[in-house]
Amino acid sequence: MSDRIDRASDDRLDLFVAGTVYLDIIFTGLDAVPAPGTEVFTLGMGSCPGGIANLAVAASRLGLRTGLGTPLSSDVYGDFCWQTLKEENIDLSASRRFDDWHSPVTVSLAYDRDRSMVTHGHPAPLNADGLVGELPPARGAFLGLGHEPMPWVRRAREAGTLVFASVGWDSTATWPAEALAVLSDCYAFLPNSVEAMRYTRADTPREALHRLAERVPVVVVTCGSDGAMAVDSGTGETASALGVPVDALDPTGAGDVFGAGFATGTLAGWPLDRRLAFANLVAALSVQHFGGSLSAPGWGDIADWWRATRARAERHHAESTEAEVARRYGFLDDVIPAGPMRTVRRATATIARLSDANVGGGATGAADPH
């Protein structure tokens, strides 16, 4: 298979994702979380669709034909998220709007290269299996593990779809192993190191990696700025990838962007080490901007980073860090698309009025020059 991204040549989606979309409001530039009884002012703020939207938008910006199954409210927040997702070329035919349910909202406070979040919401009017119904034909599917049964996952596997899974923070702090039962129908599982260790009761990320490899063919454990490690039991491949050094503004949604990058490389047939390196790169580029979804890089951002990286490597000796990074990402010459690239926009503080959103984006985001 060519190293170039091979979009589906038929009517199938490249990637179908199901889950909940939140309105994310992100504050950055904080030195610490405000102490009780105090107030902190900051000039850094962004608003954008979050939750599963982070992964869907990231995948679409990487050229995958992406579909999303989600409940969305008919309130103003829901209108904003719906319009933004449509503008990001997300197929919403499996999604539904609801009048008597308000949009869930997450406030993310980014500080010290990490973030804390507060979420407000009520149970969704329809779970993922009810949304998916008849599974859209897709080469790949991505889901977040939860405590509810998801029969559509088995249907997807039986239809030949590669199913990728991630998992969120367990607010109950019980980390039940039963939550991993659905992995028997999955192709890949991508937890972060804390999630992996808590669910497997392991002492180290690597120990957790190998325990999870007994449950699912491909396991990737992310370790933040330290990179990621992976095992492919089907091919016998193992890989680890260093993090890409960048000036981080907001890590919100970086794990979702990582997942989109890994799925992109998998559907293109890349070896495990390239998939891991590429996922690390797109996640690193995303943390330089506000928010999870609208921080996701487009191919123009990747091309710009690669040009700058090669230029720095040429100015340093062969054993320098810059030269090592350039060698690690030399495969980008074979995968960056030729020709004009679609612009992407970034999150800004203002949520647009619907009339603005219908005319070139208005105040919902700034166009990226790439």
Rank of each mutant, 00 (worst) to 15 (best):
L43H: 10
V105N: 05
A367T: 09
T174F: 03
E87R: 15
G46F: 08
F142K: 04
V118P: 02
N192T: 02
H210D: 03
A18E: 05
V17H: 10
E87P: 01
A296L: 06
G168F: 04
R346W: 02
G224M: 02
C223L: 07
L354D: 13
G360V: 03
L183E: 04
A138Y: 14
A260W: 10
R328G: 00
L109D: 05
L332S: 07
F290P: 00
G255C: 08
N358H: 15
A313F: 10
A110H: 05
S225A: 12
D99H: 11
E324P: 00
V216T: 10
V132A: 04
T84I: 10
P125I: 01
F27G: 06
R345L: 00
T266F: 07
I302N: 01
F27M: 11
D14C: 12
P205R: 07
A18S: 13
S9P: 13
G130N: 07
L85F: 12
A213F: 12
V17M: 11
F27W: 15
C48S: 15
L62D: 08
A177W: 10
A138C: 10
A138D: 11
T222K: 14
G224H: 04
D256Y: 03
G243T: 08
P137L: 15
P297V: 03
P49H: 12
D75E: 06
S355C: 05
V282F: 09
V220R: 09
S166A: 06
S103C: 09
V118G: 09
P340Q: 05
R275V: 00
E178S: 11
L131N: 11
R12S: 15
L332I: 05
T172M: 08
A366F: 09
G63C: 07
F262C: 01
E319Y: 08
G365Q: 12
L109W: 09
G300E: 02
R61Y: 06
P176E: 03
V221E: 07
H147W: 13
R61E: 03
T106V: 05
L272A: 03
P104T: 10
T106D: 02
A213E: 05
A308E: 13
E158S: 01
A311F: 11
H122W: 14
S171G: 10
D333K: 12
S73Q: 08
R113N: 07
A349R: 15
V325H: 09
S184G: 06
L135P: 05
G265E: 14
G78R: 06
T343Y: 07
G269H: 13
P123V: 08
L267G: 13
A296I: 04
G234Q: 11
A283Y: 15
W306S: 02
R115N: 03
G227T: 03
N280G: 12
V182K: 02
A296R: 15
A208V: 06
A32P: 01
W82H: 14
E319K: 09
A367N: 12
G224D: 01
G339N: 13
F331D: 01
A208I: 05
D304T: 12
D247E: 14
M117Q: 14
F16N: 04
D232Y: 08
L267H: 15
D247W: 05
D356S: 08
G130S: 07
L85A: 12
L272E: 08
G146W: 04
W306F: 14
P149C: 00
A94Q: 15
G44E: 06
D75N: 08
V282N: 06
A260G: 08
L354P: 07
P271N: 04
V57I: 14
R353T: 11
Q288F: 03
